[in-house]
Amino acid sequence: MLQIITDRLIIRPFKTADHDQLQTIILDPEIMKYVRYRDTKTSENFTKLFEEHFLKEQQTSFAIEEKATNEVIGFYEFHPENNVGILTYALSKKAWGHGYVAEVGNAMMQYGFEVLNLDKIEAHYANLNPNSGKVMLKMGMRDLGSIETFVSPDDGVEIKVMAYELTKADWLNDNKQQRAV
């Protein structure tokens, strides 16, 4: 089983035993407000998603486990489309503000480019969540600006979808410079 280990985290495919910890994250509307799984609102819907997606996508969907506690504190995944990996990630509220997403992201960029052989990695976020943009910059991604605007069906608020990208060529170039220092 693939595992990527960082200073504080273990990034690994999901196991059946992760069900309840991930369910707590995905069924929390505050955490999932702007994430692709925000419509998953019941235990039954989550279990179907967990079994049909998180357990089956062993090469592209990963649990984020805190080393110190062995607790699943979130997920990180690539949604491949035409050799572009579109990121989705979320963390439990208690894991917010600790730099975990950037730590995972930096490790997963290497995985995306070297193992999945992606040409580009993109990440999208709602302008109402500017911290996601800051994390994407920390991961070396380039700001593409707004790519879409829509009105939230939940509260009628206009949301701009912001995008960032990192190309394989830019990633390789940045890593050559870091190795040369």
Rank of each mutant, 00 (worst) to 15 (best):
A90C: 12
N83L: 07
L55I: 03
T60K: 10
N70G: 03
L91V: 08
I73E: 07
E44K: 12
S43H: 12
E81K: 14
G105Y: 01
K48H: 08
V101E: 05
G74L: 09
A107L: 06
A102E: 01
G99M: 03
F75Y: 13
S92G: 15
F50L: 01
A68F: 02
G99K: 02
A107G: 04
T42G: 03
K94A: 11
S61A: 15
K94L: 06
Y89M: 04
W96E: 07
E57K: 14
A90I: 06
E71V: 03
L87K: 04
P80Q: 11
E77D: 11
N45T: 05
F54G: 00
F75C: 12
K56T: 13
E57H: 14
A90V: 07
N70H: 15
Q59T: 12
T42A: 05
L55E: 01
F46S: 00
I64H: 06
F75E: 10
M108E: 07
G85C: 07
N70R: 13
G97M: 09
T60S: 15
E51W: 00
E52D: 14
S92L: 05
Y89K: 04
A63Y: 08
E52P: 00
K93T: 12
Y100N: 03
K41R: 15
H79T: 12
L55G: 03
G74D: 05
K93F: 02
K56A: 06
A90F: 09
E77C: 10
T47D: 01
V84K: 12
E103Y: 10
E103F: 10
A107W: 03
T88N: 15
G97L: 08
S43W: 00
A90D: 09
Q58V: 15
K67R: 15
N83Y: 11
F46C: 00
Y76K: 07
A102C: 00
I73W: 08
K94Q: 13
L55V: 04
F62H: 10
V104W: 02
I86H: 11
